[in-house]
Amino acid sequence: MSNPASEPHTPQGLLIDTTRCIGCGACSLACAERNGLPVPDTARRDADLSDRAFTVVRAQGGRFVRRLCMHCDEPTCASVCLVGAFRKTAGGPVVYDESRCIGCRYCMQACPFTVPRYEWDKVLPRVRKCDLCAPRLAEGRPTACAAACPTGATRFGPRDALLAEARARIAAEPGRYLPQVYGAVEAGGTSVLLISDVSFAALGYPDDLPHEALPALTWRVMSQVPRFAVTAGVFLAGVYWITNRREEVAAEQGRPAPGDGPDAGREAP
């Protein structure tokens, strides 16, 4: 974990321009090198993310397209993690603290981009994923993948600047790009942005994500919990008091208690 004091204060990000990618695989090689992962087979065009590959270049929809953690502005993984092992840092990366993880895999179940991977082969596994080179960012250096890209298909920079650049590129060559910056609003916005000339669905990216951050969907319910608990507690205590009192009164008057009759008291919830 990097020292928070040295993290960049403005959110950094990546801009991936699929029209510029030549599929050389330098990004995945650099990523493997920086993370100490096995050398990937860059000739494979259908590789998937794994616990040993935090980014891959796939040939999909007639283009080369990268897959990697999108580093959501409001990450689903961080929201669902029971022990708070995921954290969105001010500088952009969503980082994972393996010392907290208990391996419930809710992050993998919930991630809208199906990014987190598990070390299934190990007896004591970890979740693995791209960390946007958080330690390099803390040193003021770009991500390994962006530094290695020879065509500028992956650019590193402040997210705001990259978003502006993406829009400028689309505006400059409207025929070349679809008029959409993927990640600007998807799932509430992500630090990794993509522009393309073919549909993102064809590239294997989910195109039906809400524009609202997904954690809001659960928080809407979760935030009601304390209020519900208090209300329900008071209500039930009241019901108890009333029914109990009725029995006491009935006992004093020598009548059978209301709840004992054959048809009395249709059932509780």
Partner: peptide, 23 residues
């Protein structure tokens, strides 16, 4: 089912009230 059953006690001490799993 936990990947790290040895750490089940983390759930008691490391809190994330945003998680349904926490509740």
């Amino acid at each position: 089912d936990l990947g790290r059953p040895d750490r089940f006690w983390h759930a008691l001490f490391m809190w994330n009230p945003h998680s349904v799993m926490f509740e």
